[in-house]
Structures are given as structure tokens and as C-alpha cells.
Design a protein around this nucleic acid. Structure first.
Lengths: 223, 223, 223, 223
DNA sequence: TATGAATGAGGGTTCATTCAT
DNA sequence: CATGAATGAACCCTCATTCAT
């Protein structure tokens, strides 16, 4: 009688294999026979442990989210640093997560698919995965613009920043074909490249926002 | 062995129906039976006219590309206008294409899917669809930064600009759930909203690039 | 281009095989693989011709009903005969249908199953299969009792008559075990036995109703 | 190898739950997982306690039979009462058992299924469940007709009587659809209705048999 | 030129049973 | 005495493709 019940070993193997396959193939294309094979489990194991394919998928998303939060450095930015530095740190960390390879990018891949072909998991993501990231950036941008985090202008600047980052993630497949030499064989960007892109996005964004802070500050101080 | 028959009515109906279904469901999820039904054609018509599913898909992509180019206004920007105005025009037109609904967005949807789940069509897109758009922006940005269009810095600024636009396209499903009132029932953004976003992206980008232009401008004007 | 379209040959073979298997095994236990095998058709033939298992089942019920009505002699009883003779004829014919073997009893078997484990087909049976039989008996009994066919007493007598017949159908399996010699190897009752049972049920019923007719007739005539 | 453990609490809960599920779903449709869940037992409990599904089923049938006999009032009819009264009592009690709801009807439901889809339990029923009922009616009818209980004519009259009763049990699902107001929501008939039906069946049967007693008696007495 | 019919591989899911503990 | 985990056979259904006409 085990006192420690993290679920059976098979269950965990299933979760790991499923994360991999779902990230590669998406929810619908993923075959549970494939998942079970990689997990060295019987074809009926998914049904036994999770009920059905979709419940397994949801469990995978939640597990990936939990793991992601466990090492999310963008939420541990020094609160006393100047906002410019905070932004730079965030962008660097965020890009690093997006442009690396391996398990840390699986959640991103699943999210990208949910955008195009939503499942029940999208609601979970909107509720649990996105807010921390979004909130972190809104805080920084709000500070930069001297505006509350939920101001519409802040929202738009956040979109501008995240959009600049995500495009490198979205166009990975293109980059792989157009400039294969610049990307590692495992589909990840070299750290130097990531740092370089982060620097660009940071400068672009800081200057992009600079002009916008003025009227707000003016309205505030000039009252 | 059927010879190429561009005038076949069934063939054209098939092409139209397939564009719709592929845009909605993506290549793999789209069902031939569904396409044939919408085209009021026999289930065997696809294989008869196009050989197989993938060839039909390729034909659809090419047709959509041709139609897209026929009314691509961002390629018809007044060459004598100041670059700031050119950029504003491009962003406005590009966002409009992305955020509208209907046939004009189908190619965009297919491209978004190709990024995540590439098929043979991605190569076509890289070769034929992307360069015109990319080239147009590079030209404008190059002008703004006083740099040749193929300069790395230009490339990165182009990415920053396109990324800011595409994020609104990518997050449509999220917006639909989070702020359903701001999006039309047909999944399109209201024109006023598009104009507003375009203005923001333009300002953000112009100021974002301003700082980067300085050294180039300095070198040029001798200040 | 055939002008006569009774459905494909495979479709008909499927219908025949399915009637057999459904009658033997019931809806749920019947395996479409079994049906297809007997019909010498592919496993996907059912889905192609009927959509799914339940639609095939419904088609079988309707076909069996149509065939049953085509040779339903109990509906072609001489209207000028005395009611006693009509009743005898009906009971003889009805028992014959129930106690024979082969396709004519399949509908009865399916109905017996629907009583215990209803499916969508039960509604069809209540609406289309039962009324003709029920109505025929109600007419005869009404005549015998000098009551309108929809009188409650008529209804109950009809139940008494049909119940007496149906019990021999329901207990076939028991009879097969208890008195195997009296039943043919193909699960049918010998014609002489059927005639004998019919005579008994007729006499039992006629006398059973005799007493009930008096007060009704008296109330009617003595008014 | 577990020895027979009639006192096992789990075993008894299993038996109770299984009776319920088997009555509802029949042998094949009943799911072991469902039974175990209702019995709050492990999924493997059935196989552990009873070996397999069919053995559990047999145990249920025997238990239900034992319970049924414990309160079978039709076997406790006053032997000195006139046969007409005995018949009335039997029919009333028999119909009551058939048309009520709850555990007392479970055995009837299982028997009805066995008629259509026999299992090993049918032999048990033929040997143990049916004879007491059958014998009771044969005794009464024999008395009424002045014939030995095993006379063929007695047998047929018994069938006529039981058939009249059982049809109301068999057509419950139809009655539920055609005249829903006349049946209680728990699928049982109102006591007044049962009494009414019993009275009808009794009168119908008594008169039905009256005529048959005469010739037999005449032949006997020499007229 | 075009089609209705038919096919077969493979998908997810169900469920009685078995096994190690 | 009892159980959680695991299994494999089988079921219904889907769908791109092929074939005969």
C-alpha cells in the first residue's frame, strides 16, 4: 500500500508521451495508439486512466502549465529594478522559452494550435495560462507609461510586444526552410540569436512606447 | 487520364468549395465528402479532377494566391508618398485583410496552419506568397531607416511590424471569448477597430524605428 | 443508367441479412460485421448504404412491416361472415404467423425485444405495426359484444385474446426444452398443433366474452 | 481459491446491486463495472466472489427465486375455498406481482428476457421457478374442469389464463407511451387498475372454461 | 466526362477478465 | 479477503481511395 500516490507509473508515462505527441500532432491528429506505444502501455490504458482522449489532453495541458509555472522566471523579475530593465528581462526570458526546443515549448505549441482549432483546453488556457504572462507585461508597461495596467493603451502595447516575440515562434518552420543554418538541428534558436532578437524587440518597444507615455503623463501632471 | 480542364464547371465548384472547407478545417480535417457535397459534386469528383486530396489543396492555395494578388492594395502604394504614410497605408491594408472575414482571409488561415503543420503547400507559400508582402514592407522600412531592403536590421523591423499585426489575427479565437462584443458575429473586426489598431501599430512602429534610424540618418546628413 | 432503382443489390442483401441477425440477436447484440459477412459485403457497406447501425435497423423494421402487410390475411377476412367465424379465422392466422419459423416471424421477434428493451423502432411499431392488428380484433370483438371498437371492455377482451396467442410465441424456448418432440427442429409448431391451439383459444375467448355481451346488449336494446 | 462465504458483506452487496442491474439491463447489457460501482466494491470483486459474470447472474436468479417464494401468496390460497374464488385470488396476486414495481418484479423481468434470449438460467427457471406457479394454476383449473391437473385441456386453459395476465406485463413499455397517465411514474400500475384487470381476466377465464367443463363432465357422466 | 457503389485501413472506445500485491 | 492496475479482443464508425459503368 503505497503512501505516496502520484498516480501509477503508467499514468505518468502516458502523460509524458501524450504531451510529446499532442505537441507534435495536435489534439485530433494525435493517435492514442501512438501515445500508448511510446508510453509502453496498452491501448486501453488511456481509457482506464483518463476516461477518454480529451480528458487525457486536458490533463496534459494542466501538467504542462504547472511545470511551466514552476520555472517561469518572467514572474520573478526584481520589482525594484527600473521598468526598462524589467521589460528587457521579460522579453529575453519569454523569447528564450518560445525559441528553445523540448518540453518547455510544448505548451506553446499546444496554445498555438488552440488559437487555430480551439478545444475545451482553450478555456483553461485563457483562464490559467495567459493571465500570468499578460499580467506581468501589463505591469511593466503600465509602469513605463504611468498608466494603470488595465488601460486600453497598455493593452495594445502589450499586444505589440508579445506579437513581436511570437512571430519568431510562429515562423519557425519558415525560418527552418529559408535560413536553415541559423537554427539548430533540434529546432531551437542559438542563445546568441535569442539574445540578439531580445535586444532588438526591447529597443523597438521601448522607443515605440516612449512617445505614448508623454500625453498620458502630461494629462496627469498638467491637470 | 483527364487532361487539364480549366473550364470544367464541376472543377471550379470544387475549387471554391474546397477553399472554404480547407480554410475552415485545415488540410487534414477537411473531408472530401464535405467538399463534394458543398460543390454538389460526386464523392469521386475530387480524385477524378485533381488526383488526390493534396493536389486539390495545392490548387486551392494557388487559386487563392492569385485572387489575393489581384486585389492586393498594399502593392499599389503611391511610390512618391513619404515613407511614414506608406507604412501607415500598408499596416491599414494588411490588418484589414487579416481581420476581415470571408474569402480574402482564407489564404491567411491556410498560412497560419502551414506554420504549425506544414504541408507541401508551405514551400509554395514561401516562394510565391510571402515575398511580395515581405518585399513591400522591407522597401518601406529600408526607406525609413536609410538602409538597403535586405539589411538585417530592416529584416528585424519588418518582423516587428508584421508580428504586431499578426497577433490580432492569431488571437481572434481568444478575443471572441474574452471580449465577444467587440467582434462581429461573422468573426470579423469592425472597421473602426481595425483603423484604431492600425494607427497604434503605425505609431508604435514609427517611434520604435526612429531611434534605429538615427545613426544612419546622422551618417547621411553629417549633422 | 438504370431506370429502376430499388437500391443496389448489396443494399438488399444487407437488408435481408440484417433482418435475420437482428431477429436472432436483437439490436445491440447484433454485430454489423456479422451482418456484412452474411451479406457478403464489406464492413463499411452498412455505413455507406444506411449511415449507421440504427438506421439500418429502422430500415429492416419497415421492410419487414411492409412484407408482413403484403400477406396479412387477418386483414382480409370476409366482412359478411358472422363474427364468431371472423374471430376464429383471425386467431388461426395470427397464431400461424407467430408459431411458424422464418422471415414472417422476424418482425414478431423484433417486437418482443422492443417490449423489453425499447429503441427508436418501438415508436414506429406502435404507430404502424400494431394498429392494423389491434384494429382488426377490436372490430370483431366490438361486433360480438355489440359495442363500439374503442370501448374499454372491447380493449380488455382484445388483450385477453392476443395474450392467449402471444404466450405460445413467448414460451417457445421453454416448449423447446420441455416438450422438444412437439416442436419442429426449425423452431416452428406443426400446423396441426397450431390449428388445435387456435380452436382452443377461439372457444375459450368466445365463451369468455359471451357473458360480457349480455348487459351491454341489454342496456342498449332495453333502453 | 475462496471458499463459499455467504456472510461476506461485499458479496451480499454485490448480489443486491447485480439483481437491480440485471433486471434493468439484462444479462449481456449489464456491466460488471456498473454493478461493482453500485455495490461500492472493486471492479474485480465479481470475479473474485463469483468467478465470472454468468455465475453471478445465476446466483442472483436463485436469490430472487428464494425471496419470491418467501412471500408468494398464490401458493397459500385457502384450500377449502371454492375454485372460482381460488382462481380470482391467484389472478389478483399474480397480476399484482407482475404489475408492481421494485424488487418483486425483478425475477419476472429476468424471465421475460430469458424467453427471448435464453442463458443457462433458463434451465433453472424451468425447473424451479415455473413449476410452483404452473402447478398452482393447474390445480385450480383441474378442480374447475373436474380433470386431473396434467390433462392437456387443463394445460391449455392454464396457458390462456397466464397469457392474459402476462400480456399486461409484456406491453408495459407500450402502455407507458400510449397511455402514460394510467401508469405510475415508477412504472407500476395503480392498485385499482390491477384489481380491475384481475376481475376482468377472472370473469373472462371462468366463462371461457365453463363450456369446456360441460362436455368433459357429460362424457364422464354419460349425459 | 462523370458517377454510384464499394472498399480497407485505421480511428476511439468499451468491457470482462487477469494479475500482482 | 480484497484491490488497483492493466490487458486484449471486439465493436461501431470514418474516410480517402478505387472500380465498373
Amino acid at each position: 500500500m503505497p503512501s505516496y500516490q502520484p498516480g501509477s507509473d503508467t499514468r505518468n508515462r502516458l502523460l509524458v508521451a501524450a504531451a510529446e505527441v499532442f505537441a507534435e500532432q495536435g489534439f485530433r491528429h494525435a493517435r492514442i495508439s501512438d501515445i500508448c506505444q511510446r508510453a509502453q502501455a496498452n491501448i486501453a490504458a488511456v481509457n482506464y486512466h483518463f476516461g477518454d482522449k480529451e480528458s487525457l489532453y486536458l490533463a496534459v495541458v494542466q501538467k504542462l502549465d504547472a511545470e511551466s509555472k514552476a520555472d517561469a522566471t518572467y514572474m520573478q523579475i526584481d520589482p525594484n529594478a527600473p521598468p526598462e530593465e524589467k521589460l528587457q528581462t521579460f522579453i529575453r526570458e519569454f523569447l528564450a522559452i518560445l525559441l528553445k526546443s523540448g518540453p518547455s515549448t510544448w505548451l506553446g505549441k499546444l496554445m498555438a494550435r488552440e488559437m487555430i482549432e480551439p478545444t475545451a483546453a482553450l478555456d483553461y488556457m485563457i483562464e490559467k495560462v495567459i493571465p500570468p504572462v499578460d499580467g506581468a507585461v501589463r505591469g511593466i508597461v503600465g509602469e513605463l507609461l504611468s498608466l494603470p495596467p488595465d488601460a486600453p493603451l497598455v493593452q495594445m502595447c502589450v499586444s505589440s510586444i508579445l506579437g513581436q516575440c511570437m512571430i519568431y515562434f510562429d515562423t519557425k518552420e519558415i525560418a527552418l526552410r529559408v535560413t536553415p543554418g541559423l537554427i539548430n538541428p533540434d529546432n531551437s534558436y542559438p542563445p546568441a540569436m535569442i539574445a540578439f532578437l531580445a535586444e532588438h524587440v526591447t529597443q523597438f518597444s521601448l522607443h515605440g512606447m516612449q512617445s505614448m507615455a508623454v500625453p498620458a503623463a502630461a494629462a496627469q501632471t498638467g491637470k
